[in-house]
Design a binder for these strands. Structure first.
Length: 576
RNA sequence: GCGCCCGUAGCUCAGCUGGAUAGAGCAACGGACUUCUAAUCCGUAGGCCGUAGGUUCGAAUCCUACCGGGCGUACCA
């Protein structure tokens, strides 16, 4: 029997009993995790059923408990007031959890959805005038976790991004470079391309105070760019190339990848065509001043502009084009936009406009918003250079990890040393971000926030490494069907229970597009292992069968951790 | 002004489609390494779940109002 079948089997029988005894066919019931003081694997609350069957929950619970059959895996089912608690036979519990984990390995807990769908996930979507910062890290880390969660549900996921590579902000950096660049290049300065370009963007913003005419220069340049001025276009592609090269390195480091990359410079004109079609269809109106607008006041939104009076496109124009292109290319069942919460309004407008333009797929789009990242000094402001730079942060975390490794009992030599430190640093950043519900703002205090102790990425990696070390010393790899007799202690049962509930957690986490659920659960799983590990000997257990069984349980836990860490984008380590 | 989001332990957060005694981590304090990795484990202390009403057998969870914080409400992105 698979873990995933357990709920259904239990619920089916409860429904049958209630149907028979209370003449009440379809009762809404669900399984849940019993509280800690209850010694059972699964719980069912009888309140909703009681309402439907018109009798007390206690009566339902006691009746079901009395009538429930005796499958070979069930130890007992007890009514505790309005609750039903199911306790599995320890053997069956260990058998089920260990066999399934050992055979599914790093895919342990993946439950395919009833229907496999094509889901396009947009994330990252940076401006190409400055390096990535902590806000982008949150976006990328979240995006990848969502992608992994949906993939684990058996969906075909298309990771997508759009590079905002055109517009006034890009021209600012270009003017900055033309003014202060003096022919320097990233190579000549030994800088990553995105950092190099970012310097001139900052230089522009700094100089604009004293030299307001720079702004006119930038506007002229935008016009020249749109008209295809060769010199401007040339500078533009050179600078964008530098930035792209820099982003590439950062993305590789974080683990971000994209199957579809769109460029605003290519899609903005497409958006304009969409708007023109909307005009022709009478959905959009052209005002006397030449601007194109749509009135959404009947939808609770304001009048929104779609094209400027001078005919140039605004932010939303390109998003129309981007969306249309995506559906033309992939016709996805769902599109998930991973974009910060400050753009909630923008996406409400976007989806509504698409709908009014007659695109039936508009309701397949969803904005997954996430909270801001605040520093102790307040909100990050890239214009003022008040940001936590992504590359710098990753460097610093890696260096901190290297320091901690100095005092570790385990020596790691050569290139592995740096790689391990890198994985630990990245794991710390990712876990720190993913453990927080996406909806919530994150308050980032570099001194306190990124640690390697407690509920951290390092904790998961450490626990995993510990198990790997044990398995190496054991000199064997437990296989499904291993004898699991002798496991019985509370710590062993607690660990097995956390594995039992893992598939459901993963499923819920994917359904809710909420990786923090997985993150929190993994910590608990790791903690259960560590508690077990401290209390019981594995390699020198009292007898060979117990040793085998404990090794198998440990290996099962390692698979659970590996499965979850992979979904969060945290690298499992064999030594640390 | 209007709209959306968030207020849970000193700090950072779980728990929120109502359900069993509100849980972790950090920080504090006290313990555990000649023994499978102490980046670990065990224990102590710490809470009018922002406030006030309401719905309910039952509210941190749902509703209303208010208070506090954030974001948005651009011919910025």
């Amino acid at each position: 029997m698979k873990i995933q079948d357990l709920d259904r089997i239990i619920l089916d029988e409860i429904r049958a009993i209630i149907g028979r005894e209370f003449k009440c066919p379809t009762v809404e019931i669900d399984v849940s995790i019993p509280p800690e003081n209850v010694d059972a694997e699964l719980a069912v609350a009888c309140f909703p059923a009681a309402k439907q069957a018109r009798c007390s929950p206690g009566k339902i619970a006691s009746t079901v408990a009395a009538r429930f059959g005796q499958p070979e895996w069930l130890d007992n089912v007890k009514a505790a007031g309005p609750y039903l608690n199911f306790r599995l036979k320890p053997d069956a519990l260990f058998r089920m959890v260990i066999d399934q984990s050992l055979s599914e390995r790093k895919r342990f807990g993946h439950t395919p959805d009833r229907e496999s769908r094509t889901v396009l996930v947009e994330y990252s979507s940076p401006n190409t005038n400055k390096p990535l910062h902590l806000g982008h890290i949150r976006n990328n880390v979240l995006g990848m976790a969502i992608i992994n969660l949906l993939t684990a549900r058996g969906h075909r996921v298309i990771p997508a991004t759009i590079l905002n590579d055109r517009g006034i902000h890009i021209c600012k950096a270009m003017v900055g470079y033309r003014r202060f660049g003096n022919g320097r290049t990233p190579d000549s300065e030994g800088l990553k391309g995105d950092h190099f370009v970012g310097r001139f963007y900052v230089a522009f913003e700094r100089e604009i105070q004293a030299h307001p005419e720079l702004m006119d220069e930038a506007r002229d340049m935008l016009r020249d760019w749109e008209s295809g001025d060769p010199e401007v276009r040339n500078l533009w592609s050179r600078m964008n190339g530098w930035v792209a090269g820099g982003f590439d390195r950062t993305y590789r480091r974080m683990g971000s990848r994209f199957e579809l990359v769109q460029y605003e410079s290519e899609t903005y004109s497409l958006g304009r065509k969409v708007v023109e079609q909307g005009l022709a269809d009478g959905v959009l109106q052209r005002r006397d001043d030449g601007s194109v607008r749509i009135d959404l006041s009947d939808f609770g939104l304001d009048e929104k502009i779609m094209l400027r009076a001078d005919g140039t496109s605004v932010y939303i124009t390109q998003d129309l084009g981007v969306a249309v292109e995506r559906f033309q290319k992939f016709n996805p069942d769902r599109v998930i936009y991973i974009v910060g919460s400050e753009q909630i309004y923008h996406f409400r407008v976007l989806f509504e406009v698409l709908k009014r333009l007659g695109y039936g797929w508009a309701d397949r789009c969803r904005h997954l918003s996430y909270g801001m990242v605040y520093l102790p000094e307040g909100k990050m402001k890239s214009r003022e250079g008040k940001v936590v730079d992504a590359d710098q942060l990753m460097d610093r975390m890696r260096d901190m990890a290297l320091e901690v490794m100095q005092s570790s009992a385990i020596e790691i030599e050569g290139a592995d040393r740096l790689e391990t430190a890198e994985a630990i640093g990245l794991g710390a950043i990712k876990y720190f971000i993913l453990k927080v519900n996406p909806m919530k703002d994150i308050h980032f205090d570099p001194r306190a926030s990124l640690a390697f102790e407690g509920a951290t990425g390092a904790y998961l990696q450490y626990t995993y490494a510990r198990i790997q070390s044990m398995l190496r010393k054991a000199g064997c790899r437990p296989e499904p069907g291993e004898n699991v007799g002798g496991l019985e202690s509370p710590e062993e049962i607690a660990l097995a229970r956390s594995l039992l509930w893992y598939p459901n957690t993963l499923r819920d986490s994917a359904e809710e597009l909420n990786p923090s659920k997985t993150a929190g659960y993994l910590f608990e799983m790791a903690r259960n292992f560590n508690t077990f590990y401290h209390k019981h000997r594995v390699l020198d257990a009292a007898c060979p069968t117990l040793r085998t069984a404990r090794l198998a349980l440990s290996a099962a836990a390692a698979n659970g951790l590996e499965s979850g860490m992979s979904i969060l984008g945290i690298q499992p380590l064999h030594r640390m």
